[in-house]
């Protein structure tokens, strides 16, 4: 028996010298994380390349092939931007509000987008929608969305009775109010105008115009990098207000900075492709499930890759299997929602 004890060291209590704090509960979780990341990268590259090359009538490598691929590359780039925006924004927003079951789109970004689009066609007719396209108009839409959210955060979080829950509630109410105004205006549209509008209100990668890239890409990258650099602070924020202040971080100012980044990302994504209500929430939840870590430095990459895989996968399948790429947001919500439920029911916790 004595030999057995010697050959089998006690696994539960590692020697004091080698005790370290890992972002993962167990070495197995760490291994699983690396595998998950690798699989996601393979899938992302696969779907991305598939979108560029699949069903390309020209032989791979020829001039014509690249010309067609370049046209398709725009939509792959849009998906990458949307993935970075939605995933980073949702994960950060959930951390800032200490709530894993909400998404920043409830803060009125999407209702505002819908209201702007509807108002344009209501007051100016179809020419109004045309007047909304163009780089200055894109910048204006982003500015209005960011402005509104900053007003909301600033007003509700800097007062004496600063309260996150009230801010969320007011955000939802404003969103709901804008939604009803839009619905009302939509009722009064002619059927043909309404039809044109509807196409704009479904989140779709084809809404994006490459002309917007010079603004959209820097905005998205700058805000996402800023949030990534704050990953360690975001980890502290998950402990809640009091513990954050105790550790020497000013909770209120941290939250404001994070929410500013979130609103930049959400505004960019929404102005670029339209509403994607469920996407961010879906990928954030999946990322927490499959990454096995509560550290933002590990969650961000998984969330972004998942988001890109979900988006590009849905487009790839819709284009090449069902020949119906217009309804991708619907398939994302259907398939994504089911995957989400399955994962949740199997794991039993968020």
């Amino acid at each position: 028996m004595a030999e057995a004890t010697i050959t089998r060291p006690d696994r539960r209590t590692p020697p004091a010298s080698g005790r370290t704090t890992s972002a993962f509960g167990t070495p197995r979780a760490h291994r699983r994380y690396r595998i998950t990341l690798a699989v996601l990268i393979v899938l992302a590259v696969g779907f991305g390349f598939g979108l560029l090359a699949w069903d390309n009538p020209m032989p791979v490598g020829s001039d014509g092939f690249w010309r067609i691929a370049r046209m398709r590359a725009t939509s792959v780039l849009v998906m990458a931007i949307v993935a970075i925006c939605q995933a980073t924004a949702t994960v950060s927003f959930q951390t800032a509000t200490n709530n894993r079951i909400i998404t920043p789109s409830i803060m009125g970004f999407e209702s505002l987008y819908v209201a702007i689009q509807t108002a344009a066609i209501y007051f100016l007719g179809v020419s109004g929608l045309v007047a909304l396209t163009g780089l200055p108009q894109f910048v204006m839409q982003v500015a209005v969305m960011v402005g509104l959210s900053l007003l909301l955060y600033g007003w509700l979080l800097s007062g004496r009775y600063a309260n996150l829950q009230v801010m969320l509630l007011v955000g939802i109410i404003i969103g709901g109010g804008l939604g009803s105004v839009s619905t009302f205006m939509q009722r009064l549209l002619t059927p043909s105008d309404f039809d044109i509008l509807t196409a704009r209100l479904f989140g779709s990668v084809s809404n994006a115009d490459p002309d917007y890239f010079p603004v959209a890409i820097p905005l998205c990258v700058a805000a996402a990098v800023a949030l990534w650099l704050r990953a360690r602070r975001l980890n502290v924020l998950t402990l809640g207000r009091d513990a954050t202040n105790n550790l020497g971080l000013d909770h209120r100012s941290e939250i404001m900075k994070v929410l500013f980044g979130v609103s930049l990302l959400m505004a960019t994504s929404t102005a670029l492709v339209g509403p994607m209500t469920f996407l961010g929430f879906l990928v954030a939840t999946l990322a927490y499930q499959i990454s096995g870590s509560a550290d933002h430095r590990h969650i961000f990459p998984v969330a972004i890759l998942t988001c890109f895989v979900v988006l590009s996968g849905a487009y790839f399948i819709m284009r090449n299997v069902f020949y119906a790429q217009g309804v991708v947001s619907i398939i994302i919500e259907l398939v994504g929602g089911s995957v989400f439920l399955v994962v949740l029911l199997r794991k039993g916790r968020l």
């Binding site: 005790r19 704090t21 972002a23 509960g25 200490n98 894993r100 360690r232 602070r233 980890n235 502290v236 998950t238 402990l239 809640g240 513990a243 550790l247 020497g248 971080l249 509560a294």
Partner: peptide, 23 residues
Amino acid sequence: NHFITRLTVRQLVGFGRFPYSKG
């Protein structure tokens, strides 16, 4: 105290070092 995140005891205790190590 209710910390909603999934943390191990060691990770939680590690947060106590934040004022010195910034993570």
